[in-house]
Design a binder for these strands. Structure first.
Lengths: 213, 213
DNA sequence: TGAAAACATGAGTGATCCTCACATTTGCAA
DNA sequence: TTGCAAATGTGAGGATCACTCATGTTTTCA
């Protein structure tokens, strides 16, 4: 299989950048590396992305690349991390104000649309989250991201249903969130028409669960 | 990532075995190769599985391995295919007799338990379906498997709700099935305790959707 | 029985990730 | 300003795989 794995250890740990860029020059170069990686992933997928090509397109040497990213996974991880930070902020904002059932219905529906749109529009993130399962560190990042997002949902549910068992609400929220991501992935691989139907069906099911008890 | 791609084409096609084993001797050897691959995947994951190691453990040369499996994905694919054939038969059997709501409740509940048990018990299949997303051919096999399984569910739903829109029933069935697989994956990566809760919550949600309304 | 087809072998090829010894630039204290 | 240490930059080369191929062995069957 095309040698797309890091020679080193199998354990899921992502080593921190070998060295954090402290000077202006290197910070700009690291940005260029990330941009190059992002472009290549969008064009060919992360698996086909070659480290040498990333370096070349970023206009740096292969050695410089490895100065800041200990291995190939690390540069993909860095992109994924940025994405999760952005999307979490957006999700938190959408759910923060919700205080009643009707508000939840509107906010959640909008959220799903936004997320689906993001998935459709961003080949990079689609690729990264698709490949996610194969890489332990990325899988853990995704799980952490899901938990964080589900947390916002849990908070809303606790506000709306103070009498309910908190642990059960957490389980529900996590499940609904994860199912949403699974639905997006499925929706993308079956094509637009059927995908839209699936997302709509998910939205209906999830809302039913979230709203009427 | 550790070399998880075939050197050849990126396209998801899995070439058929270069040569089908026609003699008794080679048929046994192919079995040994599959067994060796299965054991190695269980021990280290498919990504860390080395073709040379598979050959060695099967007691054949690397050349013989490539005589029957055109590339690394093909041997993984062969294992996955066996699994899907088995599980589809089991699922079809469980759902074939269902003729009323109560029967569906029992059959579906049992089915989820069986599937969950299979997932928990089989590190090989867990690994293969985990890595699935990264490989186009496997992703397609998984989707085909989901569709086939959802089909059985659709058939039951059409029987129970003849008035409903058939297309909507298909969408529902596919979504519920896919969500189930997503739930299993999630359940496994969060650990037994929380995993059981998640599966139970899924079961409840899915049944609600399948039964009332 | 003999030739063709099937099967078996493993050293070698090429692609790719990553390292490392050495060169250059920057920050900053004297 | 000067000089030194830390930060940064470089790319040829090492190591590891997936996979090939020329050649040898066994089985089938007319």
């Amino acid at each position: 299989m095309e040698g797309s794995t890091v020679a080193g250890s199998q354990d899921g740990q992502i080593a921190s950048p070998r060295r954090a860029p402290s000077q202006q020059r290197s910070r700009e170069r690291v940005e260029r590396m990330l941009a190059a990686a992002s472009a290549l992933i969008a064009e060919q997928g992360s698996d086909a992305m070659r480290m040498g090509e990333v370096a070349e397109r970023a206009g740096v040497s292969i050695g410089s690349l490895y100065q800041f990213f200990p291995d190939k996974r690390a540069i993909i991880w860095a992109l994924a991390e940025r994405y999760t930070a952005e999307s979490q902020a957006c999700i938190a904002a959408a759910l923060a104000q919700v205080s009643d059932a009707e508000g939840l219905r509107r906010a959640f529906s909008e959220l799903v649309d936004i997320y689906y749109g993001l998935f459709l529009a961003s080949p990079v993130m689609r690729d990264i989250w698709s490949g996610t399962q194969a890489d332990k560190a990325l899988r853990e990042l995704e799980l952490a991201d899901s938990r964080a997002n589900a947390e916002f949902l849990t908070a809303v549910l606790k506000r709306l249903r103070p009498a309910a068992d908190p642990a059960a609400l957490e389980t529900t929220a996590l499940l609904i969130w994860q199912m949403g991501e699974a639905t997006m992935r499925l929706a993308i691989s079956v094509g637009r028409q059927e995908g839209d139907d699936l997302v709509a069906a998910y939205k209906r099911m999830a809302l039913r669960e979230l709203l009427d008890h």
